[in-house]
């Protein structure tokens, strides 16, 4: 098995200590950090995401893998930045104004990071103006809006209106949360909808490709 395969396996199995050993060894042997990211880390999290989607593992097990990937990123990210390598996509995510629920939002952020996205988490109870301000600051490709309350769904509409009203027509908006539907996404002018955290990466890639 190649070292890259070892790294992939270590992330899949959530072996942080192994990751901390393998990554420096790979760098020492002249491995390309981009290859490590694209051929080991992202594919590893893709396997983990698939297993989660198929109900083969639980969230705690997925998060162990995510932490192992994070361990690797701590080492290679500075090198990637120095080399001017940028993530394929940049995303903002937040729970809309008036809503404090963040378990789902946090899981989506984890899944997106696992897919190699650069994710900025704005937290919960994020006002439409704060979303717009963050878009202007970070220039993301994608914005994720989360809500768990029926009474905060209108805040999603307000946020989408505010984003579009500020002229950010190109940024894609993906919404999710228990009371939200595809129909609602269409109604408020969002670009897409993810029914759960497991499908958030596919849903994001789909709208980013459109």
């Amino acid at each position: 098995m190649s070292k890259l395969e070892d790294l992939k396996t270590a992330v899949i199995n959530g072996k942080r200590k192994d990751v901390k050993t393998i990554v420096p060894e790979l760098l020492e042997s002249g491995a390309d950090p981009v290859e490590m990211l694209e051929q080991a880390l992202i594919p590893a999290m893709s396997v983990v995401g698939e297993r989660f989607k198929k109900n083969e593992i639980f969230v705690p097990e997925m998060l162990v893998s995510a932490r192992a990937m994070k361990e690797a990123m701590k080492i290679i990210e500075p090198i990637l930045i120095e080399a001017g390598v940028k993530p394929e996509f940049k995303a903002l995510i937040g729970t809309v104004e008036g809503d404090l629920h963040d378990i789902g939002k946090n899981l989506v952020a984890t899944m997106w990071k696992g897919a190699g996205f650069d994710v900025v988490d704005l937290g919960v109870n994020v006002s439409p103006a704060a979303f717009v301000q963050a878009i202007e600051e970070h220039s993301p490709h994608l914005v994720g809006l989360s809500a768990l309350l029926t009474t905060t769904m209108p805040a999603m509409r307000d946020t989408v209106e505010k984003i579009r009203g500020a002229g950010h027509d190109k940024v894609k908006v993906l919404i999710g949360g228990a009371p939200v539907t595809l129909e609602f996404a269409r109604e408020i002018g969002a670009d897409g909808y993810a029914s759960d955290a497991a499908s958030a990466v596919d849903a994001a890639r789909e709208i980013l490709a459109s």
Partner: peptide, 14 residues
């Protein structure tokens, strides 16, 4: 700061 704490999944319809 205002806003950034967890809510309750168990009563999402309120």
């Amino acid at each position: 700061s205002e806003g950034s704490a967890p809510g309750c999944l168990g009563c999402g319809s309120h």
